[in-house]
């Protein structure tokens, strides 16, 4: 018998009597310390993201995203953008090999939504240009719509299901890459991006105050 057959036989012989799966419905009525009412979701998201070392800006549109990024990263070098509306960064795509991205200073990508309870953004590979990009870039900026913030991870998976997106790879990203392996001292920028900035686009927002 092959190992596969052996393992399955032993497992099936030893597994206990069938136990039903629990309901998930009651979960997530309250998120991790975050107010769940409409407007408050984005605020909660920003608060948590900042607490885990990320930065967040609520903006009126891509014009502001570009302005802020130029201010934040004046000498960042190579910029790869998956957001054509941004108006700068190299025309991304068509890389023969992800290793070509090793010197990217800033990647700007459009994510699907944010999660208020943990500051994470969900992004599928079709929006990453290359799977490696959100990890290999020295700095990462993600853009979501302000109204696309869900309360918690239960709502997140409901949304993923509802969106019906097929993906070969997808990830939640919550803040910059980090480590505390040396005496529990938190250091931002382990192997991946040293910074993570999320832009929450609010189309109804007036630009008046900015100019």
């Amino acid at each position: 018998m092959s190992s596969r057959e052996n393992i399955l036989k032993t497992v099936k012989g030893n597994q206990p009597e069938w136990r039903e799966l629990p309901e998930l419905k009651a979960l997530g009525a309250a998120a991790g310390g975050v107010d769940l009412s409409g407007e408050a979701l984005a605020d909660g998201f920003v608060k948590v993201l900042e607490a885990i070392g990320g930065a967040a800006y609520v903006v009126s549109g891509y014009d502001r995203v570009g302005t802020i990024l130029r201010e934040l990263f004046p000498r960042v070098g190579r910029v790869v953008s998956g957001c054509p509306e941004l108006g700068f960064g190299e025309a991304a795509g068509g890389y023969a090999d992800p290793h070509e991205l090793e010197d990217v200073g800033l990647a700007v990508l459009s994510a699907h939504f944010g999660v208020a309870e943990n500051g994470a953004c969900w992004i599928t590979e079709d929006r990453m240009i290359e799977r490696a990009l959100p990890f290999i870039a020295q700095n990462l900026a993600l853009v979501i719509r302000k109204k696309d913030v869900v309360a918690n991870m239960h709502a997140a998976y409901e949304k993923i299901e509802a969106m019906g997106l097929g993906y070969g790879f997808a990830t939640f990203i919550a803040g910059p890459s980090k480590t505390a392996d040396i005496e529990q001292s938190l250091v931002l920028g382990a192997h991946g991006p040293k910074s993570m900035t999320v832009f929450l686009v609010d189309e109804e927002m007036s630009d008046a105050g900015f100019y």
Binding site: L24, L27, G28, G32, V48, I52, V115, E117, N118, G119, A120, F135, N152, M153, H154, A156, Y157, Y167, F169, A170, T171, F172, I173, A174, G175, P176, S177, K178, A180, G192
Partner: peptide, 22 residues
């Protein structure tokens, strides 16, 4: 949704790991 809410809060007190890659 259930396990990712529990895992890192239990481990280090973070709300989630930086990357939860699927």
């Amino acid at each position: 949704g259930v396990f990712l809410r529990l895992l890192t809060r239990s481990a280090t007190g973070q709300p989630i790991t930086t990357y939860s890659s699927h």
